[in-house]
């Protein structure tokens, strides 16, 4: 691993158990991991392998049962709810499979929702242009296609200038053409803003655009690959 670049995340023995006793489900079984700053990282693995759980814990949405998760030397597992909210507010952008836009706000306003509370946000128009939606910023979600909605969601996630962008199945509900367009946006965000991008997906082909690919199975990391040459989203087989 590259020793010069500081890590965005370091986890040690990260464990997550749902339930108790014989019914307990071990979602994460002692995960040790280092994610260098500025990389695109793809997490691959079958359903229930623990990749989303990892994302949720280091994204500040869920708590670990055991182990340590460091974000730039701050221990996320020791943070209060309030501190986790602060962490999400200042550093983290999320993109979900089902977009999760506010139906009562226009595209622009959905982005403004974030820029209003962020410390150092980017210009709203710029964020929407970045995702190629400069024209449709005054439309409501109901007036947009799925791909457009997802691009608004990405604009909303990047507008705060996040340190890290988490994407859980960002293309899961999209056709190949729109899916590729979304991946392009994520690539651009990484290249232009230097944000660490973590993508959880079933689509193994997506791995070709990543700096680093982490394979999950049964709540543990099976192997980590680094891509010497990365493909552009256009070259990815869908």
């Amino acid at each position: 691993m590259n020793e010069d670049i500081p890590n965005t995340f370091v986890t040690k023995g990260l464990t997550k158990v749902y339930g108790e006793g014989p019914a307990a489900v071990h979602a994460l079984r002692g995960v040790d991991l280092e994610i260098p700053r500025g990389e695109i990282v793809v997490l691959l693995g079958p359903s229930g392998s623990g990749k989303s759980t990892l994302l949720n814990i280091i994204g500040g949405l869920d708590r670990a049962s055991d182990g340590v998760a460091l974000f730039e030397d701050q221990d996320l597992t020791a943070m209060s709810d309030r501190a986790l909210t602060r962490y999400r507010r200042d550093h983290v952008g999320f993109v979900f499979q089902f977009y999760n836009l506010m139906p009562s706000l226009t595209a622009r306003e959905n982005v403004e929702l974030v820029t209003e509370i962020a410390d150092d946000p980017m210009d709203v128009d710029e964020a929407l242009r970045l995702v190629g939606l400069g024209e449709r910023m005054d439309h409501f979600p109901a007036q947009m296609s799925g791909g457009e909605q997802q691009r608004v969601a990405i604009a909303r996630a990047v507008a705060k200038n996040p340190t890290v962008l988490f994407c859980d199945e960002p293309t899961g509900a999209l056709d190949s053409k729109t899916g590729r367009a979304v991946l392009h946006v994520l690539n651009d965000v990484n290249a232009k803003l230097g944000a660490t991008v973590m993508i959880v997906t079933h689509a193994a082909a997506t791995a070709a655009m990543a700096h680093r690919v982490i394979h999950f199975a049964d709540g543990a990391i099976r192997r980590v690959e680094t891509n010497e040459t990365r493909l552009s989203p256009d070259e990815i087989a869908w």
Partner: peptide
């Protein structure tokens, strides 16, 4: 509820 959850994820307090 989804809007509320989204707001929380974005970093809005309770």
């Amino acid at each position: 509820s989804r809007d509320l959850a989204s707001l929380r994820v974005i970093g809005f307090t309770r």
